[in-house]
Design a protein around this nucleic acid. Structure first.
Lengths: 200, 200
DNA sequence: GTCTATACATCGATAGAC
DNA sequence: GTCTATCGATGTATAGAC
């Protein structure tokens, strides 16, 4: 009856999601527009009714992810807590966001080179440096307060932790028996113990 | 005089190394044979005097790396020590090998999808599972002896540590002031403390 | 061992019928 | 909104002269 306009945006989302899965699995450059079209059951030419180019699809996938990431971090950064708790919250927020956009996260990590050719790459860089700033600030704070060790370069610790956390999207997928929140706490726990200045 | 045959194999190595650097930076699929030829100052057609195909170049790069990796691990696995020391030795051997073949290591991590199309992919898989087996055995031993924690899944600990260690090739390069051996010890230290069952 | 020239496949993208 | 048909660019690889 007073029915909705037959979900016109649906096709767009279906295409975007199918493309994201392919991009994540094979890389953007190695994925053809024909493969994307096959995945949704249309011909490659029809894709261009929904998107102006292959790049535009990539851009929409990544922008969606980074919008969400920026929002999550803004919330976490508004809170006050000890360095250890703040670091744990960053891990939780990162992993929760990543698993709302697992394909986008994989694309960002695996195709950084290609991404530099995107029109909105500056926006992505801005969010990425916001993320890096947040981690490094917390780690440096913890070293300053004496909570964290000072015998290992904070940048080394940051990068080890960053890779371990963000790359987990390649092998970890949330399950009922081991949900994201618990996984995030395990990861944070290992790194916090490893970088703690105090005997546990 | 009784001179060597004017180093015929040199060109091959020069081409292979130039290709490796490009593959690591942009991905295999996104790197063209013309770019490789440009990098060594010849035309793309001339490449095929040295290699039968682009895939063959990739394969030689990766096989070289994996041969070295297998050799390093065989040595380390012959030694006996505590779980903590053995894990530390695995980190040292891994990072030392990675930094003898930094481009190959980056290619393996960044283009795993493409690699599956290689003729010798089964060999690569074999070495990769040797590596995984070595890490998991040591970790499980440490949990069994009570040296390592039992409240975090060993597989989770393994994967976090694996990603942090192997992905470091993307950002860490050995320097005089911070050589591989020291970096390896720092990384092992953080993870060993983080996964230790004993107060430090 | 490199170059010239080119074959052949595949890619992203477009135009217009339905 | 999809299909048919196709263009132009680009990619890997080959053949033969030098």
């Amino acid at each position: 009856m007073g029915q909705a306009p037959a979900a016109t945006g649906d096709r767009r989302v279906v295409i975007r999601d199918a493309a994201a899965e392919l991009f994540a699995a094979k890389g953007v450059a190695a994925t053809t527009v024909r493969e994307i079209a096959d995945a949704v059951g249309i011909l490659s030419g029809s894709l261009y009714h929904h998107f102006t180019s292959k790049q535009a699809i990539v851009e929409e996938i990544l922008t969606d992810y980074f919008d969400d990431l920026q929002k999550s971090y803004t919330e976490v950064l508004a809170q006050q807590a000890t360095p250890a708790d703040r670091l744990r919250n960053l891990v939780r927020a990162s992993l929760a966001t990543v698993h709302r956009h697992p394909y986008a996260a994989e694309i960002y990590q695996g195709d950084y080179g290609y991404l530099q050719s995107l029109p909105h790459f500056d926006y992505l860089k801005g969010v990425a440096s916001l993320v890096q700033r947040a981690w490094l600030d917390v780690i440096n704070d913890g070293v300053a307060t004496g909570d964290f060790r000072h015998d290992v370069d904070p940048r080394v610790f940051y990068r080890l932790m960053r890779d371990a956390v963000w790359l987990s999207v390649r092998w970890y997928r949330p399950r009922g028996a081991y949900p994201v929140a618990r996984f995030a706490d395990d990861a944070a726990d290992i790194f916090l113990h490893g970088f703690s200045a105090r005997p546990s």
